[in-house]
Design a protein around this nucleic acid. Structure first.
Length: 198
DNA sequence: TAGTTGATCGTCT
DNA sequence: GACGATCAACTAA
């Protein structure tokens, strides 16, 4: 499995966001391989988007958002959770796509163990494993250390996946106060692993 | 089923 | 000193 090339991420952020749906998120963890099919994302458009971490300019926290496309921006929130973004566009613009949910494809046992070690419970069904931005980070063991990871290097990457292009739906973004007028959440229609129905 | 709340801490004001 | 790109447990009806 090979990572998508840098050029994939250097395109307009909304294009990349929709194009990420159906792709594989791949994590090499020692000898184990974790794979999830991306089913839900949100776009954050840098300094022109009031909901974006980059809205008020470059800081120590959001610095990675301003790197060139194809890096991973991981942030800590609510005192306990991590969320992962794919940086998009050329160097210096501060745009990214939040990974909100994936469908587990491979390494489900490892993901379950990772979830048990974290803050969140895996209560009940397997559909709770990766159906939210903090849940998928816990399952894939993505935390502070992974902030700034280059997705070209292979440790964490996004790869092409088999199958037809998924049917895409859009909605308002979740959990934000400003910028609610934009429908920049994209997800695969009728997919069980999407974080909530809409 | 919808709505509310506690947990918990780094970052920015 | 306030609050968040969350989640799960709880309450009410």
């Amino acid at each position: 499995m090979r990572p998508l090339p840098r050029s994939f991420y250097l395109r307009p952020t909304l294009t990349v966001a929709k194009d990420l749906l159906g792709k594989y998120l791949v994590r090499k963890l020692g000898r184990e391989l974790l794979i999830g099919r991306i089913v839900e994302v949100e776009a954050y458009l840098g300094t022109r988007d009031p909901a974006s971490h980059a809205y008020r300019g470059r800081t120590k926290r959001n610095d990675v958002m301003f790197w060139a496309g194809g890096h991973l921006y991981v942030y800590f929130t609510y005192g306990m959770h991590f969320c992962a973004n794919v940086v998009t566009g050329p160097d210096g613009i501060g745009e990214a796509v939040l990974l909100r949910a994936v469908e587990p494809v491979e390494g489900i046992e490892r993901m379950t163990k990772n979830r048990l070690h974290g803050n969140l419970s895996v209560a009940g069904a397997q559909r709770n494993l990766t159906s939210g931005p903090a849940k998928l980070c816990e399952a894939f063991a993505i935390g502070r250390r992974e902030n700034g990871t280059d997705l070209m290097h292979g440790e964490i990457m996004i790869a092409a996946a088999p199958g037809p292009k998924p049917r895409i739906a859009s909605s308002k973004r979740i959990g934000i106060r400003a910028g609610t007028e934009f429908r920049w959440r994209f997800y695969i229609r009728n997919n069980t692993w999407v974080s909530r129905k809409n």
